Computed example of a mutant assay.
Amino acid sequence: MKDAKNVTITDSEWMVMRAIWTIGHATSRELIDAMNELEGWSASTTKTLLHRLIQKQAVAQHGGSRPFTYKPVVGEKESMAAAADDLFDHMCAMRAGSTIAGVIQSRELSRADIANLQAILAEKAKTAPEEVQCNCLPGDQTC
């Protein structure tokens, strides 16, 4: 699989990728039908996004003739992790905790997810600093 950190996916492309990840491999007709049902997109919109994903090497086209099948080249979990890392790399390190808390509060989580988060936080608490340092500007700046 291609390293997801090297692939930037737009919001619309995420919709197509989610369909491909869910199906595993899909024909353009399956994707067109799915995107039409989910988003009301035309066939040309879905084909354009699919072509962009192929150019970005996030999706591979298989088959010598129609119907072609399309398979993901980047993994779903890896892509989500890369997108989250990118987001957090662009914000002040001091704001990461409150941002994560906000995400947790706004999302539905299973009991297993919550137990996993609690275990991760308990382990992380063992070595956590009293305060995270601001990383916005060099020197002794603080947000």
Rank of each mutant, 00 (worst) to 15 (best):
E39R: 13
T48S: 11
N116L: 05
A125W: 00
T46Y: 06
S42V: 03
T46P: 02
R29A: 13
H90W: 03
L38I: 13
E30F: 07
A119D: 10
H90V: 01
M94A: 10
I114D: 04
D89F: 06
P67V: 14
R111L: 10
R52L: 03
M94P: 01
Q57F: 08
T48C: 06
M80T: 08
Q118H: 14
R107K: 10
A125R: 01
D85T: 07
I54H: 02
A101L: 12
L50P: 04
G97D: 08
Q55W: 05
G75Q: 07
K56Q: 04
V59Y: 00
L87R: 14
L50I: 11
E123S: 09
R95G: 04
D89R: 15
A96G: 09
G40S: 02
D89N: 14
S106F: 02
F68V: 07
L121V: 15
A34H: 15
R111I: 09
T48H: 08
W41Q: 02
A60I: 12
L117Y: 05
S110R: 12
A82G: 07
C92E: 06
E39K: 14
T99A: 12
L121Q: 08
A26S: 04
F88W: 12
P67C: 08
Q55V: 10
A115P: 03
T99I: 11
S44V: 05
L121C: 06
P72L: 02
S28W: 02
K56D: 01
E76V: 05
E78T: 15
T46H: 05
S110P: 13
R29W: 11
Y70S: 01
H25F: 10
S44H: 03
E30R: 09
D33Q: 11
V74N: 00
N116S: 04
G75Y: 09
K56W: 02
E30D: 09
L38Q: 14
H62P: 00
